Amino acid sequence: MRGAAGRFLLGASLVLIAFNLRPVFSSASALLPEIRSELGLSALGASLLTTLPVVCLGAFSPLAPRLAQRFGTERTLLGVLLLLALGTGLRGLSSVPLLFIGTALAGACIAVGNVLLPGLVKRDFAGRAALMTGFYTMALCAGAASAAGLTLPIEHALGGSLEGALAVWALPALIVSLLWLPEVLRSGRQARRNGFHVKGLWRDRLAWQVTLFMGLQSALAYCVFGWLVPILRERGLDGVTAGAIVSLSVMVQAASCLIVPHIAVRGRDQRLINASLCGVAVTALLGLLFAPLSTVWLWAVLQGIGQGGLIAAAMTTIVLRSRDPDVAAHLSGMAQCVGYLLAAIGPLIVGLIRGWTGSFSWCAALFVALGLGAAINGWKAGRAVEINVHAAEKDG
């Protein structure tokens, strides 16, 4: 049994782990023009760089429950942090192949971490699932905001070192791995249970609605992480100002993440809040694309409210639609496997639209389509019912 101090330390550790699961995305976005000029990256290469980690989120998500069953959740998360630091560091070696290899490795680690966190919340904080979901999704946003706002100033402080500005984000992951180590040692003294499997999840309609809600709102989020700084810079803002605007938007996301789960669990269901947040996020993106530059700070705040709320709503939906922690872990794996593979299409299409048309304006049609799809599936996934599957213990 954990005391109050032990539960606080566990919760704080989970929040700090979550902080490290987003800087890879927004740090590269903030320096995308510099990466293209210094490393000779083409428009297609830039699109692939912003899309690659999102593809990895989907491709490696199914491995997370298996790794957790084999090695234990705590040990798996320690490995995630160490390999994430390695992958992030590889991006700072002035090599295009290592830039892509490091990004892919970091994306794979983030995929595993993304899947395991909801299961840990369901297991260790069942009575405070909304609060903990809010805290760790807030930390996800805080990590993205920090990288968006600080990466370019760090590059300037390092004398224009692109490599150092990309690699510096390995340090927080290394520090948190040391903080997580006592939890790993503690879990090693616990008896390891047999693995669990969930039958029928991939045939369940509600599970697919949760998955599509996760995927389509994630596509909007990664369009923001990957391309909003270049969009604003193309509209005439300097790099530091554009990064600051995106950082503000993502910091507002963090606040929205903390509030939305509490609102979501108080209602009879989550249909209206899921659909409404989609409308807010898309409207704000259109404002950032077309509204006068004097108003972009306002639209950034509004976009942060909508997008941060969507991230938290999607994570909360996974927890609320699951009967137990094992179903939550497997549903999280499914939602993030299919969802992030779907989400990867978003930033890729944005880059292709920019290459084909010479402008980001036509991205508006993409944002509206993604938002409409997310709203429809968010409405269906928000019904107050649970997925009709159970976790069964494997023999042996």
Rank of each mutant, 00 (worst) to 15 (best):
L39F: 14
E34A: 14
G200M: 07
V282C: 09
S187V: 05
A43R: 12
F60W: 10
C109W: 04
L352M: 13
K199L: 10
L342H: 04
R70W: 09
Q253T: 05
F367W: 08
R354F: 05
T357N: 10
S27P: 03
V368R: 10
C56W: 04
I305V: 15
L63F: 12
T137M: 08
F135K: 08
A108K: 03
E234F: 04
T357D: 12
T76C: 09
R70M: 10
L298M: 13
G89Q: 07
V338C: 11
A291E: 11
A329E: 14
L166K: 06
A264P: 00
E393A: 14
A147H: 10
G243I: 12
V176H: 03
L99V: 11
L117Q: 10
G371H: 07
L99D: 11
V229N: 09
L41P: 08
S146D: 04
S322T: 06
V327S: 05
L174Y: 03
A374R: 02
L174C: 06
G236C: 13
A369E: 02
K394W: 06
V198K: 01
V389S: 08
G58A: 11
L258G: 15
Q270K: 04
G188T: 01
L342T: 12
L174E: 06
C141N: 15
S361I: 02
S322H: 03
G333T: 11
I259W: 09
A104R: 04
P182D: 12
C363V: 14
C56L: 08
G309F: 02
C56I: 09
Q270P: 00
L212D: 03
L370M: 08
L9D: 01
G306W: 02
C257F: 06
E74C: 05
V15G: 10
